[in-house]
Amino acid sequence: MIGKIVQTLGPWGPVLFGIGFLAPLIAQSMEALEIAAPFGLSFIQTGLLIGAGLGLAAKLRGRWI
């Protein structure tokens, strides 16, 4: 059971990391550095877009860098 869940979620790890950690990290960093969010978006919306995008790219490419 646990193994199945891990096998299903595992490949989506980078996307989950992008949403779960990178998104708020980007949002809070923008706020701390006083960087304005583009296109009238909020900080967290920007973070979610960039974080999920980076995570998806990492999943597809098989590497973050």
Partner: peptide, 18 residues
Amino acid sequence: FWAILTALAWSGYAIEAA
């Protein structure tokens, strides 16, 4: 580890967790 990082990040402590 990932759950704690995520919880910290969404509680406003993302930079600290990082």
